[in-house]
Design a protein around this nucleic acid. Structure first.
Lengths: 119, 119
DNA sequence: AATATCACTATACTAAAGTATACTAATCTT
DNA sequence: AAGATTAGTATACTTTAGTATAGTGATATT
C-alpha cells in the first residue's frame, strides 16, 4: 500500500495496475511468506507440519504470517471440530495461482543470471 | 539470498529455481526499487529527474537504491565527460524485461482482487 | 497422576529498512 | 562576486521486521 502511494508522476500506467503489482508484492515479500506458500503448495498442512518444514521459524512468526496470509486471501484456516481440535492450513485458489507469478520470476531470474554473472 | 537459504525440505522444486525467484524478489522488494524502475522505463534520466519523479525520496535513499540496482545489473550509470559532468541512469536489458514479471503480477493482482474483495 | 503434544500467545529484545537534516565540491547563472 | 544547481555524502535518528525465550490451555498418552 505504502509503496504505491509514493508512486510518482508516471501516469502512463493505470493506477489499478500499480495497485495490483503492489498487492502481489505484499503477498510475496518478507522472509517467510514464500517458504510458507511453498510448504502448502502440494498439500494442506497443520501448524506443526509447516513449522517442521521451515525448521528455523519461530511459532510467533509463523502465527503472524499465517494470519497475514489468511487476511489477504492466500491461505485458508480450516478448523475441524474433532477432539482434539484439528487445524489445517490450505492455499486458496489465489494462493495456488500465484505460482504463475513465481514462474515468471524463475524465468526472468534465470535469464538475468545468464546475462550478468554468466557473461 | 537470506530467504532462500531458509527454504525448507521442499525438494520438489530445483534449487536454481528458488535462487532465481529470490533474485527477482530482491530486485523488486523495498519501498523504492519499483518506483525507480518505473521512472526509468520509458527514458533514461538524471539523478535529479528521478528524484523529482518520486518527490518524497531522500537523496540518500535514491543514491543507495541506484547503487544497489547498478550492482545487480538492473540499472546503468552513464557518465558523460562533458562540463559539467552529466550523469544519466538507464535500465539494462534485464531492467527492461522485468516488465514481464510485473505484467504477471498485474494479472494475478487484478484477478485476486476480483476473487476476494470483488466477490 | 505426570508427562507430552498441539496450536498457539506474551514480553522483551536485536537488526534491518527507511527518514530527517545538514552539508560538500564542482560548475553555472546573474 | 553571490547565489543557484547537480549529484551526491555524513550523521543521527525512527520505524518496521524479525528473533529469543518462556508460557498457556486443551487434550492425549503412559
Amino acid at each position: 500500500m505504502e509503496v504505491l502511494r509514493t508512486f510518482p508522476k508516471i501516469k502512463k500506467c493505470k493506477i489499478s495496475y500499480v495497485l495490483a503489482v503492489n498487492d502481489t508484492l505484499n503477498v510475496l515479500s518478507g522472509k517467510w511468506k514464500l517458504p510458507i506458500i511453498a510448504s502448502l503448495l502440494y498439500e494442506k498442512k497443520r501448524f506443526k507440519a509447516i513449522q517442521d518444514d521451515l525448521t528455523t521459524i519461530t511459532p510467533r512468526m509463523l502465527s503472524k504470517e499465517l494470519k497475514d496470509l489468511e487476511m489477504n486471501g492466500i491461505v485458508l484456516r480450516i478448523v475441524h471440530d474433532s477432539r482434539p481440535v484439528l487445524i489445517e492450513y490450505e492455499l486458496t485458489e489465489s494462493g495456488k495461482t500465484i505460482t504463475k507469478v513465481l514462474d515468471s520470476m524463475v524465468e526472468w531470474g534465470l535469464k538475468h543470471r545468464e546475462l550478468t554473472i554468466g557473461s
